[in-house]
Design a protein around this nucleic acid. Structure first.
Length: 491
RNA sequence: CGGGGUGUAGCGCAGCUUGGUUAGCGCGCCUGCUUUGGGAGCAGGAGGUCGCAGGUUCGAAUCCUGCCACCCCGACCA
């Protein structure tokens, strides 16, 4: 049991904050709103990156890198895009510092003012589409399927580690296509990639759908998203994929000659996931004993702790532990053998439990006599003894089992906390007493959406692609509705 | 930017109301011995511009003024 650790029931927000700090994932930086991602947290992010990057490559994308600075004038070219991001942009205005003449230390050198101010990218559509103009002339240049891993800055008022920070890490895909159909297909395909990643790697079930007009990306024609339920019943947008139509092509004059020798504007998509996924991962599975990580993303899948009293015990235990480590590594299991004598076993147990290592193996003199090892799984906190023979296959199987169990648990939780509401009273009652997702009819107007949000703080998280399109009456106005949408309070 | 709160050792805090020896406590850290199957015990030790600046006073962590920083709750957002 972790010491001085807030429980979820006690204060969910505090539980999250403490978990991030105490599990050594990240900490606040000297710069307000920015975070320092620590080695353990970064290792998880690297595992996410690696898995996603493979999927991007497999679907035909290649990586590029565009500058962090964007000329201010680029931003004004797509009207709704500027409007969406203008309020949260950091701007570089000078390029030199100097010693203050009055001895007040280093100051900005006013004489070194930039001719054109540079915006620190909040997203890269503008600079990328300005460049695509030169890269695309013919239908033979299409499709152009590129992605970049980068940092972006959005000057947020209130921040929380991983969930919302002024600077965050992400990946942004930017694709160009000859036809609308192709661009739409790409938008849907990449959402599927995200959903697949969320479910199979993060062990986190997600809803797929489209955003309402008010939640749409600034500059997009349509925004698709995946939404996951956190353990407090709130929804977290885990990934977005945008159909940009010809908006950016027109703003940046990106045209190509088709087979009929006709000039046409290019069709576009963009899509991204960020370090926010770290927040999602933490809140999807962790418990009052600390972090719980799915084996596929855990930096260490197994930790081996040796138990001994005397030096001669250690030599024997150590030898066996090294054998087991090797057997596990042969099965491509990421394993850490912690034979430090600076910490006691009990301390190590607590430490790795708090850090969410999926499986712990303890080996002591008694195990050597019996030919066993003690195996503890983090997800259920169960301990059992395994015969040490063929340990690699057994643990490999156990890791698969844990991965699946985490998914099932998250899915059960989501199902249990998903309701349908057919009246306004019912809608309010569910939000107040149960929270979670509510499937309800909506008349399709931004006005109603806004009123519901004002009244309940719940917003439309997504409009499902399929399966919920039977007509009905809006839960708020009673006006005709084309189908149910998903309402929830959101991060 | 509105409302609330906090700045004292690496971290978490007490002390401030009612000014007065050398500023304390817990965790962590260092040394030694004993320990090691769920966060060890004992002994010794290191570590402080009390957020910053000014003022009141014989004397300020403590009282007064100004400033700064950070956190929480709102408005904005992936």
């Amino acid at each position: 049991m972790a010491k001085n650790f807030t429980t979820r029931k006690d204060d969910y927000a505090k539980w999250y904050n403490e978990l991030v700090i105490k599990a050594d994932l990240a900490e606040n930086s000297p710069v307000r709103g920015c975070m320092i991602i620590k080695p353990y947290g970064y290792a998880i992010w690297e595992n996410m990156q690696y898995a996603l990057d493979k999927k991007f490559k497999k679907t035909g994308h290649r990586n590029v890198y565009f500058p962090i600075f964007i000329p201010k004038s680029f931003f004004s070219k797509e009207a709704s895009h500027v409007e969406g991001f203008a309020k949260e942009c950091a701007v570089v205005t000078h390029y030199r510092l100097k010693n203050d003449e009055n001895g007040e230390g280093i100051v900005v050198d006013e004489s070194a003012k930039l001719e054109e101010e540079l915006v620190v990218r909040p997203t890269s559509e503008t600079i990328i589409w300005d460049t695509y103009r030169n890269w695309i002339q013919s239908y033979r240049d299409l499709p152009l399927l590129l992605n970049q891993w980068a940092n972006v800055v959005r000057w947020e008022m209130r921040t929380r580690l991983f969930l919302r920070t002024a600077e965050f890490l992400w990946q942004e895909g930017h694709t160009a296509h000859a036809t609308k159909e192709e661009a739409l297909e790409e938008t849907a395909k990449m959402l599927d990639v995200y959903a697949d990643f969320a479910e199979h790697y993060m062990a986190m079930p997600v809803w797929k759908g489209r955003k309402s007009e008010s939640e749409r990306f600034a500059g997009a024609v349509d925004t698709y998203c995946i939404e996951a339920m956190m353990q407090d019943g709130k929804s977290l947008q885990a990934g977005t994929s945008h159909f940009l139509g010809q908006n950016f092509a027109k703003a940046f004059d990106v045209k190509f000659l088709d087979k009929q020798n006709q000039q046409q504007y290019v069709w576009a998509s963009s899509w991204g996931v960020s370090t926010r996924l770290m927040g999602a991962l933490i809140m999807a599975h962790s418990d009052d004993n600390g972090l719980v990580l799915p084996p596929k993303l855990a930096p260490d899948q197994v930790v081996i702790v040796p138990i001994y009293r005397k030096e001669e015990d250690f030599e024997k235990v150590n030898q066996k532990a090294l054998e087991i480590k090797e057997e596990l590594e042969e099965k491509d299991i990421r394993v850490q053998y912690d034979n430090r004598d600076t910490h006691k076993p009990g301390w190590k147990f607590s430490e790795y439990e708090f850090k969410g290592v999926p499986v712990r193996i303890a080996i002591g003199p008694k195990d050597l006599e019996k030919g066993t090892v003690e195996v503890a799984r983090r997800d259920t906190l169960e301990k059992s003894f395994y015969q040490a023979t063929d340990i690699g296959a057994k643990i490999s199987h156990l890791l698969d089992n844990i991965q699946q169990n985490l998914y099932n648990k998250a899915m059960d939780f989501r199902e249990e906390r998903t309701s349908t509401a057919d009246s306004w009273e019912e809608f309010k009652d569910i939000l107040k007493n149960r929270g979670g997702f509510i499937l309800a009819h909506w008349d399709g107007t931004p006005e109603t959406e806004e009123k519901i949000k004002q009244a309940t703080k719940a917003s439309i998280r997504l409009i499902p692609f399929e399966g919920y399109d039977e007509p009905g009456k809006c839960v708020y106005t009673g006006n005709p509705s084309k189908g149910r949408v998903v309402f929830a309070k959101a991060y």
